[in-house]
Nucleic acid binder design. Structure first.
Lengths: 203, 203
DNA sequence: TGTACATCAGTGAACGCGCGTTCACTGATGTAC
DNA sequence: TGTACATCAGTGAACGCGCGTTCACTGATGTAC
């Protein structure tokens, strides 16, 4: 953590940090290796001591993002406590909180055009986040009678889609709706879960 | 439509067309004015006879996109016939069909970072698409008793979010789910509408 | 029908710029003795 | 503790490239007479 002298010591992570800040500001394609190096107080050529090139640096940003993302979702799910329903709702809120709190990571993960299958390293961490979501969904669905229990992967995909859509359309500058993204996502998931029969209808 | 001689005659629209193709291939930020000009068989400088610059060309792509988008949604809604529910469902399918059929337009509209408020001209066409969605949603909600009728704008936003999320996450190369985007969106909206009480629960 | 001419869409050369990447180098570091 | 030295992280100059934009120009067009 401390400056370890002339040889920067933490350059690799410092580059990731400045790359993330840049991606947040200018989008994944507006990001340049040279600018990231400059912000880390270093020559562009120094980057090549730690990364294969521009793309590799973005991939590392995404990788670290998936790690945090997985943790955030897992903590929110909290083993389905106090109830599966409450924990699931918390997981939805956590999705949006992550997008807000780590916009650079989020963009590197979902808007950089980098496929999670780009490297085994990357797909591993991406799959972990997927598993957390599917596990939570599965636990929630266990409360439904077998005969009206839709496929877990499908429900999980619905939730992902709604969450991602809210982030992209309503949690960016230049809002489109008169609702806070948090309220929008919470109410949307609420209606959806009622449609699954997981929440009693109030009629 | 026909080549009108040496003075290209249709250059403005030809530039839009090649810009759209480029955006589709390389994303909105990978698109360059020079390449678009080259594909239209013309010098980069010629672009400035028809557009103020790079951004202005993207804006025109988005504008034409919103025009088509509005038409597509309106045709799908078809005045709520045969039933509001069936027409609404068709509108959801139309959203995805538009994203598939006009990927360049879709990207210029939603992924280029250009705000619909950038010009009055642009916000006008964007608002029209919005109005179609809200109108359809409103007509559908009229089937609900007043006391459990959520705000139209909120429901409309939920549907937009789910649709957009499905497009972004599951209708791009490098699929993530084992479901066709069309099925995913249709089933997702189905569950959601059931949650609103617009479809009888089957239990 | 034929000629002179104004229009203006597209040319082509030029500009300054920042990009990603390479390369031989330098000099602070920590270690061996 | 003090000195010699191998390591290797970061330097700085250079590269070729394509970008967006400008400018004076050219030459096909369609119109006036």
């Amino acid at each position: 953590m401390s400056k370890q002298g002339y040889h920067h010591g933490n350059l690799r992570q410092a580059l990731v940090a400045s790359a993330l800040a840049l991606i947040e500001e200018k989008g994944p394609t507006g990001f340049t290796l040279s600018e990231a190096a400059k912000r880390a107080g270093v020559t562009p050529a120094a980057v090549y001591r730690h990364f294969e090139g521009r793309e590799d640096l973005i991939v590392e940003c995404a990788r670290q993002g998936y790690l945090i993302f997985g943790d955030v979702l897992e903590n929110a799910w909290n083993d389905g406590k106090p109830t599966a329903l409450a924990a699931f709702s918390a997981t939805g809120r956590a999705y949006l909180a992550f997008a807000r709190q780590y916009p650079g990571h989020y963009m590197a993960m979902f808007e950089s055009g980098i496929s999670p299958n780009r490297s085994t390293e990357l797909s591993k961490v991406a799959e972990r986040a997927d598993r957390v979501m599917e596990h939570a969904t599965g636990a929630l669905m266990a409360h439904l009678p077998r005969d009206r229990r839709p496929p877990v992967a499908m429900v999980s995909a619905h939730i992902w889609a709604m969450s991602h859509g809210v982030v992209e359309l309503y949690a960016r500058e230049g809002n489109r709706a008169p609702y806070a993204p948090e309220d929008l996502l919470e109410s949307g998931i609420g209606v959806y879960l009622r449609g699954l029969g997981l929440i009693r209808p109030d009629y």
